[in-house]
């Protein structure tokens, strides 16, 4: 616990994912994602995390900083730069072939080590990634870092060395707080992420992107494919949904009847 945090070092974790707008395809022979024509982008959920961090920095307006952290191959550099173009100060990339094939556990271990080395006051994450859709990393990071974990935040305030968030629940929200340093995951309803301005894009070219390799993390356990505790054993393509019937219903009562008959045939009614 830090008795007096004045200037905050805010870290935002971002994942790089295959473009969400493309209808992704699996090559039936190699069973791998066809990446040609599929761009790598910032995980859309993480844009809310970046925006939340930038807003916090702007509100505090005291020299607090925002650092982007991503565990991703070196080739992801230009995408990380987009996060810098939004307004983050600098970035740390954790890139190493030895980290390829990491499962959630391995990712949490490596990422936590990289984060810890930055001594942050606040770690902000997205709620989930669009490719893995696990939503588990925020909790795992909190545990591995030994920080309190405040997930599903739609509003974040920091004062007097504590972070207070509105955590979404299924039926509303709860207000929870904890001492810094802490991990906070941010939901989509928190804000509207900004677009990088031209000035931001130009400025980002000069911002520092620090590279960390596996050896820099001081890991004592094997991660990557070999260390994975959830090992991929099979990858299959699900049966394609067949095109069903399309029925014109100029008469609404007739349309309703067609649906009801269909539901009766399928034993829903």
């Amino acid at each position: 616990m830090r008795p007096e945090v004045s200037v905050l070092k805010i870290l935002v974790t971002v994942k790089l994912v295959p473009d969400t707008n493309a209808d992704k395809r699996i090559d039936p022979t190699t069973k791998r994602l066809v990446r040609t024509g599929v761009e790598t982008v910032l995980n859309p959920f993480d844009e809310y995390a970046i925006e939340a961090a930038l807003q916090l920095k702007e509100t505090l307006n005291d020299g607090s900083t925002v650092t982007i952290v991503s565990m991703t191959p070196v080739s992801g550099k230009e995408v990380v730069r987009k996060a810098l173009a939004m307004g983050a100060d600098d970035a740390v990339m954790i890139s190493d072939d030895a980290l390829g094939g990491s499962d959630l556990w391995g990712t949490a271990v490596a990422l936590a080590a990289g984060i810890k080395a930055q001594s942050p006051d606040l770690v902000i994450t997205g709620t989930q990634s669009t490719d893995a859709i696990s939503g588990d990393l925020p909790g795992m990071l909190a545990e591995k870092l030994g920080y309190p974990g405040l997930t599903y935040a739609r509003k974040i305030d920091v004062a007097d060395g504590r972070v207070r968030v509105q955590r979404e629940t299924e039926t509303g929200y709860m207000t929870i707080s904890a001492a810094l340093p802490a991990v906070v995951s941010v939901t989509k309803s928190a804000n509207e992420p900004r677009y990088p301005s031209l000035k931001g894009i130009m400025g980002a070219k000069k911002k520092e992107i620090k590279q960390l390799a596996a050896a820099d993390l001081g890991l004592t356990v094997a991660v990557g494919t070999d260390g994975a505790k959830a090992q991929l054993t099979d990858l299959a393509t699900p049966p394609v949904r067949a095109k069903g019937q399309v029925v014109q219903a100029p008469d609404p009562a007739e349309g309703a009847k067609i649906i009801v008959q269909f539901l009766k045939d399928r034993k829903f009614l």
């Binding site: 959630l104 556990w105 696990s134 939503g135 909790g139 795992m140 974990g149």
Partner: peptide, 19 residues
Amino acid sequence: GRDVGSRFAARVDCGINAD
């Protein structure tokens, strides 16, 4: 469920599968 499962997995260093 995700909060509890993820924290437990990280604490005991085990694998976790989602969804």
